[in-house]
Amino acid sequence: MSLFFIMLSVLAGGLLYQRGGLDALRDGLAQGLILLISITPLVLLALLLAGYAQSLIPPRWVESQLGRHAGWRATGLAALAGALMPGGPFAAFPVVLVLRQSGAPLSTCIAFLTAWSVLGLHRMIIWEIPWLGWRFALLRWLISLPLPWLAAHWAYRLERRTTREETA
């Protein structure tokens, strides 16, 4: 994956140099450095919190509440947590990392991320209701409500299918 981003960066740099010369390339590097400096503390703090969470949440609890044998209850709990999870990807992805490393199945993690992305109550309150009105926000939220369960279901089925194919 790193090789892909290195190649993409070199390609983008080449295109930038071709269009605007060395000054454009320097400007792009400076903007990238500013972005790196501003984001790095967030990423470090999010990973630190993920490490704390992994130490605080016993793997047995994850297995019993969110594991394969928890069924739709696990999907519901993950969807509720995702919908209530504030913040951007720097908050949500470390949580999923901790869940996966603690034994949560792929389907549960996908339910969490799907709910976080389409059912986030904080985004609905902060952005959708003030800008688009409560009717729009509520209708969009209700239409999106089944998506974490659908995503978890299909993730479970695809994971089972690929696991069977690998063992065959």
Rank of each mutant, 00 (worst) to 15 (best):
121 L>A: 10
127 W>R: 07
2 S>R: 14
98 V>A: 14
36 L>R: 08
102 S>D: 06
116 W>R: 10
168 A>E: 09
106 L>I: 06
33 L>W: 15
45 L>I: 14
23 D>I: 12
156 Y>T: 12
69 H>F: 00
16 L>T: 13
36 L>Q: 13
163 T>Y: 07
69 H>S: 14
103 G>D: 10
137 A>K: 02
129 I>W: 11
115 A>E: 08
84 L>R: 04
150 L>G: 01
161 R>N: 05
140 R>A: 15
7 M>I: 12
48 L>I: 08
160 R>V: 12
99 L>G: 00
51 G>T: 01
31 Q>A: 14
123 R>L: 08
154 W>K: 04
104 A>L: 05
135 R>Y: 15
157 R>H: 14
110 I>T: 07
102 S>A: 11
40 T>K: 04
94 P>W: 00
35 L>Q: 11
94 P>S: 03
15 L>G: 09
166 E>S: 15
76 G>Q: 06
128 E>K: 07
65 Q>S: 11
115 A>K: 06
10 V>M: 11
64 S>P: 00
144 S>V: 01
163 T>F: 10
15 L>S: 06
96 V>C: 04
24 A>S: 03
44 L>P: 05
132 L>N: 04
80 L>M: 11
69 H>R: 11
122 H>G: 13
134 W>L: 12
44 L>E: 07
115 A>Q: 07
168 A>Q: 12
141 W>M: 03
150 L>H: 00
137 A>W: 01
48 L>A: 11
74 A>I: 00
75 T>L: 07
20 G>V: 08
15 L>R: 09
75 T>G: 08
43 V>F: 06
134 W>N: 09
77 L>N: 02
47 L>H: 08
131 W>I: 15
125 I>S: 05
88 G>H: 05
107 S>F: 07
36 L>P: 05
10 V>W: 06
78 A>T: 01
111 A>S: 09
3 L>S: 15
62 V>N: 00
86 P>N: 00
92 A>T: 09
44 L>H: 04
93 F>Q: 06
